[in-house]
């Protein structure tokens, strides 16, 4: 990973162009002190129509929808969402397993995750939202509080660029999620870039709590294609990247069962994230990063509609 944070987005040519037009929409209502491009939980002066309410005395008559009156012969007042500034926290998994690249991709999982988070940070800061970064493995390795001013983006990118994989370190989701909860406080946006392999029950509960508090949580599950199909042919001595004991195996013989087991693990994670109202986007390192960002944005748009 280059040390120049600006180059981060230029690593994959066209990535910036591809995502610059995207407007990241946050589905969940956010509370914030700053007005912005996102809808607020409180209705107020805004161009974005939210819903019709039956007129009741005391309501501002300027908000009566006359067209609805003409259609239904009833009084409705139009409620508008108030735009608010978004606080977004980027969580970067720095555990040993993120260091895997494989033979079929140009990036390892860690670099890929940094590209995705960097791009998202860029877009969010550009539209006036506050972005913070937390890198973690068994402990926090990177910590940047959220900031929304234009000069904050280079800092975000620099922190991301300087983040290092922690070899042989595992992921402690619980700790970092608690920290994120304390940083976000009110409703905000949480983007977690990780392979999610160490997501345990405790972390799941915290994640669930965050979701129920109304935080907009997205997991970019960064996986190498090798993890998905175990493509090795010869006898391989597998070594653990997070202090697991190694083993020698014939991948060809285990492939079928491995894929099944992986699917089960994926299903467990899917269930966990669904229960936590977490949106999980598959960020396979074989995909172009912009494709992931497009999917991320389009899924959010669909959810909003």
């Amino acid at each position: 990973m280059t040390q120049d944070p600006r180059i981060l987005l230029d690593v994959e040519p066209g990535t910036y162009d591809a995502i610059s037009h995207l407007k990241i929409q946050v589905v969940a209502a956010i509370e914030g002190f700053l007005g912005g491009a996102h809808r607020s939980l409180h209705l107020g002066p805004s161009v974005e129509f939210s819903e019709h309410n039956r007129y009741s005395p005391g309501d501002d008559i300027r908000n009566i929808d006359w067209k609805a009156l003409a259609r239904t012969d009833r009084y409705f007042v139009k409620a508008h969402e108030r735009d608010a500034q978004l606080t977004c926290l980027m969580l970067l998994d720095c555990s040993g397993s993120m260091d895997y690249q494989g033979s079929r991709t140009r990036f390892n999982k860690f670099d890929y995750a940094k590209i995705l988070l960097g791009a998202l940070s860029h877009l969010l800061v550009k539209q006036g939202d506050a972005v913070g970064v937390l890198g973690f493995a068994e402990s926090l390795t990177v910590s940047l509080p959220p900031g929304g001013h234009p000069g904050h983006l280079p800092i975000v990118l620099e922190r991301l660029a300087r983040a290092q994989v922690q070899p042989n370190h595992r992921t402690r989701f619980a700790d970092v999620l608690k920290r994120a909860q304390s940083i976000l406080g009110q409703r905000g946006m949480l983007v977690l870039a990780s392979d999610m392999w160490q997501m345990d029950e405790e972390a799941g509960l915290i994640l669930k709590g965050l979701g129920h508090k109304g935080h907009d949580i997205t997991v970019l599950q960064v996986q190498s294609p090798d993890e998905l199909d175990l493509p090795f042919d010869q006898t391989v001595e597998f070594k653990g990247m997070e202090r697991e004991p190694g083993l020698i195996a014939e991948p060809a013989l285990l492939r079928h069962d491995y894929v099944n087991a992986l699917a089960k693990e994926q299903a467990r994670l899917s269930l966990l994230t669904r229960q936590s109202r977490v949106d999980m986007v598959a960020a396979h390192t074989s995909r172009q990063p912009y494709e992931v960002l497009v999917e991320f944005a389009s899924r959010r748009n669909r959810s909003r509609k």
């Binding site: 040993g96 391989v236 001595e237 653990g240 990247m241 997070e242 491995y258």
Partner: peptide, 11 residues
């Protein structure tokens, strides 16, 4: 040959 692999726990 030796490969450091992330999903060793599944294997």
């Amino acid at each position: 040959h030796t490969v450091a692999f992330p999903t060793l726990f599944i294997l």
